[in-house]
């Protein structure tokens, strides 16, 4: 929108300028500016790292799970070493080892980090806020069945639940069970069934509704 007179300022960009500029935002810019000025990091590295952060999504983990469902030898390699198995698919799962914990008909797995917020971020992207919340971190180790019920996941009493507490040196992901009724689906269609929460353990994949 033009104000009808010539103006020395560049046009406003509400997308980056609206909203308060908090002290911690200024601290973030200041730390980055100094690290750049001192040559500790370069602008190119910063840009590429931001691109890497944006590129990591649960779809990467879903591809891994779908391949494991379709290829027993690959599944064995996932259980052996997630990072190496991901590399086979061209996915960089990061330097920190990730262990896959496999659901069975009588065993359900769920992951947490009670001490902080460790999560396989390089593989699955950013953790959801609730994963980092006091309520989730406190309660899922003591009453997982109740917490899962709050997510709408009602497990039969005969299914045992194992909770895996992540650390800075070892992260977990859940390898969910392939749902019944998906025999005819190809790998891509199977991957679409695997959501982020299925790999955290607060959900399970469901077969698509029959047409």
């Amino acid at each position: 929108m033009s104000s009808g007179h010539s103006h020395p300022h560049p046009p406003k960009q509400p997308d980056i300028e609206d909203g308060p500029y908090s002290w911690h935002m200024a601290l973030t810019d200041a730390v980055a500016d100094l690290l750049l000025a001192k040559g500790v990091i370069t602008a190119d590295e910063l840009r590429r790292t931001l691109e890497t952060i944006d590129a990591a999504t649960p779809a990467q983990g879903a591809r891994l799970v779908a391949r494991a469902w379709c290829d027993p030898a690959f599944r064995a390699r996932v259980l052996e070493d997630v990072n190496a198995a991901a590399a086979e698919l061209g996915i960089d799962a990061g330097a920190i080892p990730i262990r896959a914990v496999e659901n069975r008909p009588d065993l359900h797995n769920v992951i947490v980090c009670t001490l902080c917020s460790c999560y396989p971020r390089y593989l699955l992207g950013a953790a959801p806020d609730w994963y980092k919340s006091r309520a989730y971190r406190s309660r899922v180790v003591r009453e997982p069945r109740a917490v899962l019920a709050e997510f709408g996941l009602l497990l039969p009493d005969e299914v045992r639940i194992e909770v895996h507490d992540s650390t800075a040196e070892l992260r977990y992901m859940v390898l969910p069970l392939r749902p019944a009724g998906t025999e005819g689906l190809d790998e891509e269609a199977l991957a679409a069934l695997v959501t982020r929460d299925c790999m955290i353990g607060t959900a399970v994949p469901l077969a698509p509704p029959r047409p």
Binding site: D29, L50, A135, S138, D165
Partner: peptide, 26 residues
């Protein structure tokens, strides 16, 4: 805080702001 009593898990999430991604990148 593992094992301590706490309220219900609120299923909240937000898309990370650019400055939050910048912290992560740093």
């Amino acid at each position: 805080m593992g094992g301590l009593p706490a309220g219900p898990v609120e299923p909240v999430e937000h898309a990370h702001a650019p400055w939050e991604k910048k912290v992560d990148a740093i």
